[in-house]
Design a binder for these strands. Structure first.
Lengths: 169, 169
DNA sequence: CTTGGAATGTCAACAAGGCTGACATAAAGT
DNA sequence: ACTTTATGTCAGCCTTGTTGACATTCCAAG
């Protein structure tokens, strides 16, 4: 209506940009995300945790020693929200919080052995779903998948995503 | 660890199935979904609604006259949760609920003019983000994107997704 | 050395949107 | 006619997000 995405396509094949195609993409994102979180959600429920705990555990595992503030920016929640989750994880002995040596205001976060175990349980399940989808779709499709997802991110999030990627061995 | 996704790849190029690649895909999904919902979230906040309202509005628009139970299955929430959202939308005059003629137990849901207006506002914003991402990535990547997302869905959700697709003109 | 600002943590209150349980009503089956 | 099933509603609880206020601790600038 406003942008005329469903108008007559130009000379090239722009049929993949019609409103109907876009709507299907939107719905695909919705349904796929449900599948994406389904397996971890089941595991988390057994441990009386939620997605918020999963996210914290994931990114602490990804960047051991990360500060609370860094985690805050990655997760995009308030410190009060994150603090509630971290308190639970620290209290349950899954996460260790060490006062910074250089800057003692900072708390550096690490997974304990128990935290590592839960992280492994969660990520193995989530990777299994991902691996099955990747295998079924093939490498070509996976490249496209990654390309579109990156284009969909806010620029700031894209930077964080790349920073994480590049930090990996 | 458990499935050995990072072991030596087979004869073909299976490097896209390494744990590291899968982890990057997982993180890409997380960050992309944030972008995916960001624009609607902003609009919804102005109207004092949330994502739950958006989802209901989207699928009522997609299948006018759908029953509450059908919507329930698509959204994957309890009827009590959905009811709270529907009551608000009906009370605010965005959705109309008509008692079924054949089976009077059913309520058939329709968007009013006002509901249509909000739906348009939301979906225009969301499609704009999607369109930009699609255009940047190109048709080939979009095909891959769609393929991987479909493979990631639970089978039941994949069926619902296809049913919606095929119902479209 | 003092002070301002930044990083962290805590407490309290509140809202959105999940959930379960209890229940009313209409339709369908026996 | 009575029971069962399907559907929708209401009430209450929980997680996880939000703001606001405030204490603490420390670095760094004046």
């Amino acid at each position: 209506m406003a942008e005329g995405g469903s108008g007559s396509p130009g000379g090239e094949s722009l049929l993949f940009l019609t409103d109907e195609q876009l709507r299907q993409g939107i719905e695909a994102m919705f349904f796929a995300y449900r599948g994406f979180t389904a397996d971890p959600d089941r595991i988390l429920a057994e441990h009386a945790y939620g997605r918020a705990h999963h996210r914290a555990i994931h990114f602490i595992n990804r960047s051991p020693g990360t500060t609370v503030n860094n985690l805050l920016n990655i997760l995009g929640v308030t410190k009060q929200s994150l603090n509630r989750v971290l308190r639970a994880l620290i209290g349950d002995g899954l996460v260790e919080s060490r006062v910074g040596t250089r800057d003692k205001r900072e708390r550096h976060l690490y997974l304990t052995e128990a935290g590592d175990a839960l992280e492994a349980e969660l990520s193995i399940a989530q990777r299994a779903r991902m691996r099955a989808a990747y295998r079924l779709a093939g490498p070509e499709a996976v490249r496209g998948f990654r390309t579109v997802l990156e284009s969909m991110m806010d620029p700031e999030m894209r930077n964080r995503f790349h920073a994480l990627k590049d930090a990996a061995p």
